[in-house]
Design a protein around this nucleic acid. Structure first.
Lengths: 253, 253
DNA sequence: GCGGCTCAAACTGCATGCAATTCGGGCGGT
DNA sequence: ACCGCCCGAATTGCATGCAGTTTGAGCCGC
């Protein structure tokens, strides 16, 4: 298990499409774009000063990551994962991140430790900001960990699945209580430094599991937004009260 | 843990780009296109009867999956994973597939069992065919398993990482001996049917691990193809013998 | 008022065109 | 022979244009 060839070499490409991808990703995970929001190619192109071709390409990439849904001849929308998909994403995430900490335990360098604690401090500071930001920071903590493995593949998968989880949090989560998460992050760092592989894997597991179960409260579709699902229970007793003409709430454009 | 909403609903999109993606993926994992092979946009477009735009988009998708490498202003090439990346891919794959069999153990339906055994029989029959085909079939066995979880996300990740592993096999593997792998597949099916979670997870783990270690023989760069790495050890004692003018060996048409 | 129909506007799917960059072979110097 | 340089061909990056599909707002009959 020789050490790896160092380095945060992952130079982010400055492709126009990559730029748009990053911007959209961030907008999505900060819930500036809610699940279901429309993403017309021209609007995006206009907004970012590029042609439709590029916007389209970016949407393709994000669709590959599962953040947007792309149906033929239809306007692209921010993905709306089902509850089951959310649960699956978390299951996968748990395994992947256990792998991350397994590789990392006891191998962190001084500057890496500093970077991690700095990040958690930032999370702490952002606690009175919006939920969206603290969720993003919490997610980025995990991605930061993944980066430190120096395994591009692991980074990619952890990032993707973490973003997806982030997305579902905005769908199914009750008001986020981030404090405990932050403490758990600190505990993970401590265990990593100490090099206790089993402990840190357990910590990571329970951390993610608790986030998942706290967030994905149940298959209760109440907070979901698939109208059909929401309305299903009312289908029988329809007529008692007129269904309010819900105002569409389109966020796209 | 209620059962899931059935069904192989994953209708493959008939988008032109998806078609091209599938074709290229298959060509790559069957080693019709070796790592490093060039993939010019117009050639692809011409070959598949579409415009460059579409070919380009397809390449973008495959790059997102890690099967091709895309550098700005440069011709796209089939990816050439480093040995370390290959090892990482296998590590991730092991975790993901353990998850698959964990979810599947004892829950297979009759037709699913039939499908799996049929597939392994096909593997058996293909044993005297080319290595490429048997490797592809072996990979598809794992993807078939993933499909049976009815978790689109899991399917996506297992597929991707399996394809990547497939790609690296063609780079670093010694002549593939597929027989034992086939028997291991049968053993996995048996354990799944029996519903022995721990056993099947162990089987899957050792199966993949043995494939990995048998294939990824060592960090010996001999069979690798990164010239710089190969030549590194000789850099010091340069001059003793003139460096042979290696003939470039570009395979991309 | 309510549900269905129609049609124009909006949008996507895709090909093509143009500018910028890279690639590769020939040429001259050593 | 060997190396570096140069220039045309090959190739990518991106915008635009056209055709086909979806959308949704208005209109009509009830």
């Amino acid at each position: 298990m020789a050490g790896r060839a160092d380095s945060s070499k992952t130079a982010e490409p400055s492709d126009k499409v990559s730029v748009i991808c990053r911007a959209l990703r961030r907008a999505i995970i900060e819930q500036a774009l809610e699940p279901g929001a429309k993403l017309p190619e021209d609007s995006l192109g206009e907004r970012f000063g590029v042609s439709r071709t590029i916007a389209r390409h970016a949407l393709g990439q994000l669709a590959a990551e599962g953040l947007v849904e792309l149906r033929r001849n239809r306007i692209a929308v921010v993905a709306t994962p089902s509850w089951q998909e959310a649960r699956d994403a978390f299951d996968i995430r748990i395994e992947l991140e256990r792998l991350v900490v397994r590789q990392l335990a006891g191998k962190l360098t001084k500057p890496q430790i500093a970077e991690l604690t700095a990040h958690v401090d930032a999370e702490d500071r952002a606690r009175d900001g919006t939920d969206a930001v603290s969720i993003r920071l919490a997610t980025e903590f995990h991605i930061l960990l993944a980066h430190m493995t120096n395994s591009p593949i692991l980074v990619r998968y952890v990032s993707e699945v973490a973003y997806r989880c982030c997305l579902t949090l905005s769908l199914y989560s009750r008001p986020h209580s981030s404090e405990c998460a932050i403490n758990e992050h600190r505990a993970i760092i401590a265990a990593l430094v100490k090099g206790d592989v089993d402990k840190v894997m357990g910590l990571m597991h329970s951390h993610l599991d608790s986030v998942a179960t706290r967030a994905l409260v149940a298959p209760s579709p109440q907070r979901g937004r698939d109208l059909l699902d929401i309305l299903a229970p009312y289908a029988d007793e329809a007529s008692s009260e007129k269904v309010v003409k819900l105002p569409k709430a389109v966020r796209g454009r």
